[in-house]
Computed example of a mutant assay.
Amino acid sequence: MVNAPDWSDEMRNVAAALFRIEKHRSEQDVVDSLGHLAEWLSGPEQASLRRAIIVWFYRVFLPNRAPGLEFPDVSDVTDLHEVHDMLAERIKKWPEQWEARGREEGRQEGRHEGVEGTLRKQVELKFGELPAWADERLKQASDEQLDIWVARILTVDSLDALFAEEPSS
């Protein structure tokens, strides 16, 4: 059996550090690996490699791992120590931001389901059991479409009229 690679500072393996960032087990792994890279690549001869890592980190890694969170423009960042320090500070706030985003998504989903359920009940009370095509239209409706139908249910005389497309203007 092959031994797992040594992630210690002595190894100074840039590729392994990047792999560890990409396949991290925790946000702290990312912070630690960036710290190692910042130290290892501090020499002036490694400026282009540092820049490439910064660009990859901001344009590829972060958008995939922390979607929806805002970060500085990559052109404003020139130092891996700066990236490490920013990440070490911001990483503490990520769970709160993800939790808030999850609550908001849950509220939106709950509102959608509530409006859909109420409209379904109104349609069944007014027109009887829903045919499969009407049931499918309700299930696939956007929030905006449901709002239109909620207003329209009061004035229409048929399911066809309720679900009729609005004329284009």
Score class of each variant (00 low, 15 high):
Met1Ser: 15
Asn3Arg: 14
Ala4Leu: 15
Asp6Phe: 08
Asp6Glu: 15
Trp7Glu: 10
Trp7Pro: 04
Ser8Phe: 07
Asp9Thr: 04
Glu10Asp: 13
Glu10Cys: 00
Arg12His: 11
Asn13Phe: 06
Val14Ile: 15
Val14Arg: 12
Ala15Ile: 07
Leu18Ser: 07
Phe19Lys: 09
Phe19Cys: 02
Arg20Ser: 12
Lys23Asn: 12
Lys23Asp: 08
His24Ser: 12
Arg25Pro: 00
Arg25Thr: 04
Arg25Val: 01
Ser26Gln: 05
Asp29Val: 01
Asp29Arg: 04
Asp29Ser: 05
Asp32Val: 10
Ser33Val: 00
Trp40Tyr: 14
Gly43Trp: 03
Pro44Lys: 12
Pro44Leu: 01
Glu45Lys: 11
Gln46Gly: 00
Ala47Arg: 15
Ser48Cys: 00
Ser48Arg: 12
Ser48Gln: 13
Arg50His: 04
Arg51Trp: 03
Trp56Arg: 01
Tyr58Glu: 02
Arg59Gly: 00
Leu62Gln: 10
Asn64Glu: 14
Phe71Leu: 03
Phe71His: 10
Asp73Phe: 02
Ser75Thr: 10
Asp76Gly: 03
Thr78His: 14
Asp79Thr: 02
Val83Ile: 02
Val83Cys: 03
Asp85His: 11
Met86Asp: 08
Met86Tyr: 14
Ala88Trp: 07
Ala88Glu: 11
Arg90Gln: 13
Arg90Trp: 07
Ile91Tyr: 01
Lys92Leu: 13
Lys92Thr: 13
Lys92Gln: 11
Lys93Ile: 05
Trp94Thr: 06
Pro95Val: 07
Pro95Asn: 08
Glu99Cys: 02
Ala100Met: 07
Gly102Thr: 07
Arg103Met: 04
Arg103Ser: 01
Gly106Ser: 05
Gly106Tyr: 06
Arg107Glu: 09
Arg111Ala: 12
Arg111Ser: 07
His112Pro: 02
His112Cys: 01
Glu113Ile: 01
Glu113Val: 02
Gly114Lys: 04
Gly114Asp: 07
Gly114Ser: 12
Leu119Trp: 11
Lys121Gln: 14
Gln122Trp: 13
Leu125Phe: 07
Leu125Val: 03
Lys126Met: 05
Gly128Asn: 09
Glu129His: 13
Ala134Pro: 09
Arg137Asn: 07
Gln140Val: 02
Gln140Ser: 14
Gln140Leu: 12
Gln140Ala: 13
Ala141Lys: 05
Ser142Cys: 05
Gln145Pro: 02
Asp147Val: 05
Ile148Thr: 14
Ile148Ala: 08
Ile148Asn: 07
Ala151Glu: 15
Arg152Cys: 05
Arg152Gly: 05
Ile153Asn: 06
Leu154Trp: 14
Ser158Cys: 06
Ser158Phe: 04
Leu159Ser: 09
Glu165Trp: 00
Pro167Trp: 04
Ser169Asn: 14
